[in-house]
Nucleic acid binder design. Structure first.
Length: 597
DNA sequence: GTGAAGGGCCAC
DNA sequence: AAACGTGGCCCTTCAC
């Protein structure tokens, strides 16, 4: 262990740890603290491509900088055992910024978990409560909460150098040291805003998410290409036919052969349609064009082309480029608080928008000898709504154990369950989903083909049946507009900003604010389930590989599948019960070889 | 050339 | 009077 003299300007005291004795002494001193500042330095951004160079842990007075290049293979080096023990110990808090990054590197390059994490990035996002203007980089957060300026210029320096410079080590140490005063400010703020519980919920699922990203998901590239080839043929044929149909409306077509139109250009296609005499609506979205398709075959062809084009571009060759050569799997980026409601978002690629069609889903399969255990929550948002509103009839529809939409149809239209028509069930289903988003009679009429007055009457019947649900939604809307704040069951908060003189803005804020507690509580429950699952899978072959809002996918050895299925279902229902008491939260689990079942 | 905005569409 | 919530990705268009 070498003691370094700090540069006056930085006021940083650190110790550089490069041998076994140093590790022991450092960990001994660090273990006297309840809280530590924590950071890492890496040679790349992707843990499968680069090396982990430094691990920094700070008491606030002293910062220990562990140089992993001094310990041989960092995954196995026995000299690093005390460090691993410290990182895994949940009773010692590690304060880090965007900890998912560090946790992935530690997991992959030190071979251990990191527990007891406080993440200042997630805390900042929670405190900002949906304010999109706030930034959440460490520099921004440090400025906002402790009014200190951070120089991040060394972040892009060469962490692979055989000898690190004084300046590099100092800045590395500083990044860990600054976390402690930051934690102090942010913990107070979380408590004052009633966000302590949701913060713990978020911190607890950092490790599951870090592991999920490292695990990746297996995509059968051969199957994917086979599907892609089919789509290519359809797309080419459809494009050709559409080109012919559209050219008929272009003047030069007869003189110079077919005038090529860029089929992906909104303007060119609209112009061509107008030339053909098609009454093109202001927007050419599919649902606007659909009614015209019967009279104008060219419109039907356009919709067909768009679908094929979407498949080819969004779900084509590009996804195969995300397969990591080291693992042969796809390691997407999951943003834990991807939406202000608390939902995840996913990118590079977005595994949450893979088409539901079997042709696509079946390409995500269990590798040989493995199984996928897949579970999704049954009607979770509606169950949350039933709980929040405490509406007896709505709750009854769930307790019956029957087809939920048929049950609501039976109640709303006052007919016996067995006499519910397919049409009545469909109305009920669309309404059940629509009310979560604050649908109005006009939109409901559009969806169902009902006239405005019939749509209004059906909605009146619906809310007449579920009077407490109606009352809850009204009260929730009133509260959101009056208080400009909405919260989920975990306490997650959304502040609403709107101009009260703008009726449309008020209505939009009301819908958003009414929806947020429902959508967000669903996210709360999923996150809790991830932690419970993580703990119960410890030591088994089960690996979390994907989550899609109300669905969790685990890959495991075929022999473990039954046991994993039980653990998964238990974790999901137990998580639901922590937040929802009046209604059972159900998860449907199945074991499969493919995502498609 | 690069990037933002807008339209469109996939998921839940 | 009235317009269904959340995300990401692809393409075109247009400004710089």
């Amino acid at each position: 262990m070498t003691e370094m003299t700090p540069e006056r300007s930085l006021n940083i005291y650190f110790q550089y740890v490069t041998d076994a004795a140093g590790v022991s002494r450092a960990v001994e001193e660090l273990r006297r603290e309840k809280r530590l500042g924590f950071d890492t330095e890496t040679t790349e951004l992707d843990p499968y491509k680069g090396r982990l160079r430094l691990v920094q842990l700070s008491t606030g007075r002293t910062t220990f900088v562990f140089d992993l290049y001094s310990f041989g293979d960092s995954r196995t080096a026995a000299d690093l055992k005390p460090l691993r023990g410290l990182l895994e110990d949940p009773s010692v808090m590690k304060v880090a910024h965007n900890a998912k990054f560090d946790l992935k590197w530690i997991r992959h390059h030190l071979g251990c978990e990191t527990n007891g994490v406080f993440d200042t990035y997630l805390a900042s996002v929670l405190i900002s409560a949906g304010d999109g203007d706030r930034r959440h980089s460490l520099a921004d957060v440090a400025k906002f909460f402790t009014d200190t300026e951070l120089d991040k210029s060394e972040q892009i320096s060469d962490w692979n150098a055989s000898e690190l410079s004084q300046s590099q080590l100092q800045y590395a140490a500083l990044d860990a040291q600054v976390m402690l005063p930051l934690h102090e400010q942010m913990a107070d703020r979380l408590a004052n805003d009633g966000l302590t519980r949701v913060a713990q919920l978020e911190f607890d699922c950092l490790m599951p998410i870090a592991e999920m990203e490292l695990n990746g998901i297996y995509l059968d590239a051969t199957r994917w290409r086979e599907q892609l080839d089919k789509v290519r043929i359809t797309q080419a044929k459809t494009a050709n036919e559409l080109q012919d149909l559209l050219s008929a409306g272009v003047a030069q077509a007869s003189l110079f052969g077919r005038a090529e139109i860029n089929l992906d250009s909104q303007q060119q296609v609209t112009d061509a349609l107008l030339n053909l005499g098609v009454p093109v609506p202001a927007s050419t979205r599919a649902w606007e064009l659909q009614p015209l398709a019967e009279k104008w075959p060219v419109v039907g062809k356009l919709l067909e082309y768009r679908a094929a084009q979407k498949s080819l571009t969004s779900f084509g060759e590009n996804i195969l480029e995300f397969i990591e050569p080291m693992t042969g799997r796809i390691h997407a980026d999951f943003r834990q608080i991807g939406a202000p409601t608390g939902r995840f978002s996913c990118s590079n690629p977005n595994l949450q928008q893979i088409p539901h069609e079997e042709a696509y889903r079946r390409c995500f399969r269990a590798p040989d000898g493995k199984k996928l255990v897949i579970a999704d929550y049954s009607q979770i948002e509606l169950r949350i709504l039933a709980d929040f509103s405490a509406d007896e009839n709505f709750i009854k529809a769930f307790e019956s154990g029957q087809d939920f939409h048929a049950m609501t149809a039976s109640q709303v239209f006052n007919v016996d369950l067995q006499n519910v028509t397919a049409e009545q069930r469909s109305f009920a289903k669309r309404l059940n989903f629509g009310i979560v988003y604050g649908v109005g009679a006009s939109r409901f009429g559009m969806m169902t083909g009902l006239s405005q007055s019939d749509a209004e009457n059906t909605m009146r019947k619906y809310f007449g049946t579920y009077r407490h649900l109606d009352a809850y939604l009204r009260e929730s809307g009133r509260s959101v507009v009056d208080n400009r704040v909405a919260r989920t069951a975990s306490g997650r908060m959304l502040r609403l900003r709107f101009d009260e003189t703008d009726r449309a803005a008020v209505a939009a804020a009301r819908r958003y604010g009414v929806n947020m507690p429902i959508q967000g509580t669903s996210a709360d429950i999923l996150k809790r389930a991830l932690r419970l699952l993580h703990d119960s899978l410890h030591g088994s072959s089960g690996k979390l590989v994907n989550i899609v809002h109300d669905e969790i996918m685990v890959e495991c050895d075929a022999a473990d599948a039954e046991a994993v299925a039980v653990e998964l279902e238990n974790a999901m229902t137990a998580a639901g019960q922590e937040f929802i008491k009046r209604v059972a939260i159900k998860a449907d689990v199945h074991i499969a070889d493919e995502w498609a079942k």
